[in-house]
Design a protein around this nucleic acid. Structure first.
Lengths: 168, 168
DNA sequence: TAGCACTGCTTCGAATTCGAAGCAACACCT
DNA sequence: AGGTGTTGCTTCGAATTCGAAGCAGTGCTA
């Protein structure tokens, strides 16, 4: 009686498998394009894109990490890498001395602009090409729904820290 | 006039973003479950699951790699790891001396069985919980469609090998 | 205002990942 | 049979990724 045997319907199974497969294939395709055109990893591109959209072109590390679903340590690594390439700057926040504010540079925007068309193209080709307008709409609706559901409950990417001090 | 500026409609954009976000979040959730319960990485689980489904519980390395959308070298690594744990065996094919046949062991099936319920549970919770039956059906249809489209044209994961011999 | 828990980020070490290059077996063509 | 290209896998080195642990700044409470 430990775990009531959960089940997926055959439709759910099909949806799940196809979903993971598409996401893998799409990701690989996009990664290749980004690497070839702008020497960017997928994560780096996501970071730049988010910063490009953000007001003032700047965001806190944590918000970035949450935004792209990424570990903080991994973000530190990539942000350093981007900083070395001059695509972003990092500095302390004036409001909170702990926070690091990452901001996209003009050079960063240039790279983003260089990579963007091919990125869009890749997404169009690999994800949308075979879909009707209704399909796309449906997909948007469903994915947004799930995404909202996921963002709602689970503890953030940082999760509950493993009780730093005394477990008492 | 180099690249005709491609565009994504706002719906497409929304679909794309939500799609990648869901896929990331789902993946993280599933990975955590697999790690906690069976000390398996996502890839390892996929491999075991595929082998479990395959006739005779065995498959060629390449077919496995293609099946899970994974690099061959990465597969070698994980297959070794699984072999060391006794969850799979590896041996040469009788038909083609080059091929390595990976087969799941009883122990491998045990681990699979131990992990499976939680896995299903995680997928249900994170992907399907907030969706209606129609949504799921739609998702299955659309994803299958895209997956078919993707599998159709692009060169396999091995891609065209970078012209091994003389480039002349 | 001192104490204490929490938050934000980085450092560290280990594990994973990939592509390029290399090795061996196969297939085809003459 | 010999030559040439292809396929299947592994090894190698470099890059990326994560979680745990550590450091510093904040905020709350007495």
């Amino acid at each position: 009686m430990s775990t009531p045997p959960p089940q997926l319907s055959s439709t759910e199974l099909a949806a799940y498998f196809a979903f993971t497969e598409v996401s893998s294939l799409l990701r690989h395709a996009v990664e290749k394009q980004l690497r070839d055109v702008g020497k960017l990893s997928y994560v780096q591109f996501q970071l730049l894109a988010r910063l490009g959209d953000a007001p003032g072109g700047a965001q806190r590390m944590t918000d970035l990490a949450d935004g792209v679903v990424y570990s903080r340590s991994g973000l530190t690594y990539q942000a350093q890498s981007l900083e070395e390439r001059g695509l972003v700057t990092r500095g302390p926040s004036s409001e909170d001395e702990r926070s690091t504010i990452v901001a996209i540079t003009d050079e960063g925007r240039d790279v983003l602009a260089k990579v963007f068309p091919g990125h869009i193209e890749a997404v169009k080709t690999h994800l949308f090409e075979s879909l009707s307008a209704e399909d796309v709409e449906m997909l948007a609706r469903v994915m947004t729904q799930v995404s909202g559901h996921l963002r709602a409950e689970p503890p953030r990417s940082a999760a509950s820290r493993t009780r730093t001090t005394k477990p008492n």
